[in-house]
């Protein structure tokens, strides 16, 4: 179990967590849902180690945690293939991940040449290619059409490592399967 014990954390002087405690399963898919600004992204940032709680502790995290950000954060000067390869370690593996994301033929395209949904899939391919013990995905299907989401969701579900997904859509959570946790806030509270 990944445990957050009495976490307090503020972002831009706004209390996002106040003595917040939560247990997350360390296997399978966990979907996190809640209104905008309730603290879902901050929760992922704390789990990824990109932010530190002011008090409280997080235990049970694996050594390596991967994260797909809310923004695509692709290197604009590199092609889709290279963006994934920098993380995957080889061009061959990166190509396989792009194929899985239905991006065959777009390997040599630069992020500016891709649509929003395509960039999102490159970003997702990069996150899935990262070898880690826990994967955090912040709105992975943003900008994708429903038929594509139906094709890609099983790839995430069958990834083989614990995945925590932030989503606004209960439909997406249902497609991914696993547990759905609903929150409100800030400060973040479980519903």
């Amino acid at each position: 179990m990944i445990k957050l014990d009495n976490i307090s954390y503020a972002y831009e002087d706004k209390a996002v967590f106040r003595d917040f405690s939560l247990s997350l399963p360390s296997s399978g898919i966990t979907c996190i849902s809640g209104p905008s600004g309730c603290g879902k992204t901050s929760l992922l940032r704390l789990l990824a180690g990109l932010a530190r709680p002011e008090s409280g502790e997080i235990t049970g995290l694996p050594e390596k945690v991967g994260i797909m950000f809310q923004e695509d954060r692709l290197l604009p000067w590199n092609t889709a293939l290279k963006n994934v390869a920098h993380v995957a370690g080889s061009l061959e593996e990166a190509k396989v991940w792009l194929e899985r994301m239905k991006l065959s033929g777009e390997e040599d395209a630069y992020p500016r040449e891709l649509s929003g949904g395509m960039r999102r899939r490159v970003s997702l391919a990069r996150a899935l290619a990262f070898k880690c013990g826990l994967l955090l995905l912040d709105e992975p299907f943003k900008g994708m059409d429903p038929s594509l989401i139906r094709e890609i969701a099983p790839i995430i579900s069958n990834h083989g490592i614990p995945v925590i997904v932030v989503t606004h859509s209960e439909g997406e959570a249902a497609l991914l399967g696993g547990r759905l946790l609903k929150f409100t806030g800030p400060p973040m509270k479980a519903i």
Binding site: L50, F69, N78
Partner: peptide, 24 residues
């Protein structure tokens, strides 16, 4: 800063961050 954070999250290391983020 977003790209630098991405580089940190994917464990690029100093040299790789310099080569892939700072220099370009």
């Amino acid at each position: 800063g977003d790209l630098l954070e991405m580089a940190r999250a994917y464990e690029f290391g100093r040299l790789k961050t310099l080569r892939l983020v700072y220099i370009p």
